[in-house]
């Protein structure tokens, strides 16, 4: 009985994930084609798994209730059925094929090379900041955890993180990107492996020292999108967030122009130890 209740509770919890999305229970659909693909796939596979789970656990729980010795059940003695074995081999295979098809399509879409890039951004991870170079614009800067979060996150700072806006998810210089444009990222690292991840874009990709990884995005909606380094990169791995400020192409042009004007300030500054 207890099992039954547990399972019911579990089912409920899962069933309501969609509705609870705002409370940070589920993946978000994001603001790019890729992120929506990933979200769609995620929900699809999740529901299939829930369905299989309900079925399998349902049978199990029924059996545990009905076929117990205390109810006077007599054990059957069957131990083998080729038909059953074939059925429960074939059906999962079919289900898997059904899952693999959209997954393959999605992967091909996401990994296909794009013919044109409106903008190329080189992203370099290093301990523990990100450096962005707009390759065709001659704009580059380093983006690190904002000062306030950095102060509060010190061991036993005694300050209340909930008083900090976007605690640990804010940076001094966000990455500014135009919406509706094809942006190409070239990811690499200077010291150890990092991973560049903004959930709203729908992917993460490792930044590996000595190699360059490519990735794409086309952001659909202006807004602020936050993410974090997603590969353990040492002591302050937890403190190298990513912030994208997605703006209209016009605003973007204006921003670039301004950056170029204040070129000196925008140039990469020597890296001071942050801790």
């Amino acid at each position: 009985m207890k099992n039954l209740k547990m399972m019911a509770a579990l089912g409920l919890l899962l069933a309501s994930t969609g509705a609870w999305a705002e409370y940070g229970l589920n993946m978000t659909p994001g603001v790019t084609e890729f992120s929506q693909i990933a979200y769609g796939l995620h929900m699809k596979i999740l529901w299939i798994c829930v369905a299989i789970g309900v079925l399998v656990f349902g049978v199990m729980i029924y059996s545990m209730i009905a076929h117990r010795k205390s109810k006077g059940a007599q054990p059957a003695q069957f131990s083998h059925s080729t038909t059953a074995e074939i059925v429960w081999t074939i059906i999962p295979i079919l289900i898997l094929v059904y899952m693999a098809y959209p997954a393959t399509k999605a992967l091909i879409t996401m990994e296909a090379p794009r013919d044109k890039a409106d903008l190329i951004v080189k992203v370099t991870g290093f301990q523990w900041r990100w450096r962005y170079d707009y390759l065709n614009e001659d704009v580059s800067f380093i983006s690190s955890l904002d000062a306030e979060s950095n102060r509060v996150r010190q061991l036993k700072s005694g300050e209340d993180p909930s008083q900090v806006k976007d605690y640990l998810l804010n940076v001094d210089h966000p990455l500014v990107l135009p919406v509706g444009k094809q942006v190409k990222f070239l990811l690499t690292a200077d010291d150890v492996i990092h991973s560049w991840w903004v959930p709203a874009l729908g992917w993460k990709r490792d930044a590996i020292p000595g190699f360059v990884n490519e990735a794409w995005t086309k952001i659909e909606k202006p807004g602020i999108y936050r993410g974090q380094c997603a590969e353990l990169c040492g002591r302050d791995h937890g403190f190298m967030p990513i912030v994208i400020k997605a703006v209209t192409p016009e605003e973007f042009e204006a921003w670039v122009a301004e950056q170029k004007k204040s070129a000196v300030a925008g140039r990469v500054q020597p890296i001071a130890d942050q801790s």
Binding site: S63, K69, A73
Partner: peptide, 22 residues
């Protein structure tokens, strides 16, 4: 998932129509 599923299903079938105690 297929061979693992086979195992799960076999276990469920083992319990099915048994005389279980817990």
């Amino acid at each position: 998932a297929v061979p693992t599923g086979v195992k799960i299903f076999n276990w469920v079938a083992t319990m099915w129509k048994g005389a279980m105690t817990f």
